[in-house]
């Protein structure tokens, strides 16, 4: 426990347990493959959009800078 998480409140550990949590996952039990999927998709999207800028500027129309 890093000490800024021990909230200065009278709440006991029982109160802290959040209502909707169905199972506690420790660091070892948690494997963020969903995060990998999401960030991977985002990365692909960035690449595609970035490549698209080429067509915006140069393909099939006179360029804005002349």
């Amino acid at each position: 426990m890093s000490d800024d998480v021990s909230a200065p409140s009278d709440a006991t550990d029982e109160d802290i347990v959040q209502d909707d949590i169905v199972k506690e996952l420790s660091h070892e039990e948690f494997d963020p493959y969903g995060t990998l999927a999401v960030t991977g998709m985002y990365f692909l999207l960035l690449l595609v959009l970035y490549a698209l800028m080429y067509f915006v500027e140069f393909a099939s129309r006179p360029s804005i800078i002349g």
Binding site: I21, K23, L25, G34, A37, T39
Partner: peptide
């Protein structure tokens, strides 16, 4: 910035899985 995306999204994913979420994208 990408490290932030990773840390923040994985913390949210941790929450989603504790709340019973599953899958690659369905946890959201």
């Amino acid at each position: 910035s990408l490290m932030t995306a990773f840390t923040v999204i994985s913390s949210m994913e941790h929450g989603a899985r504790q709340r019973g979420g599953s899958g690659y994208f369905a946890w959201m």
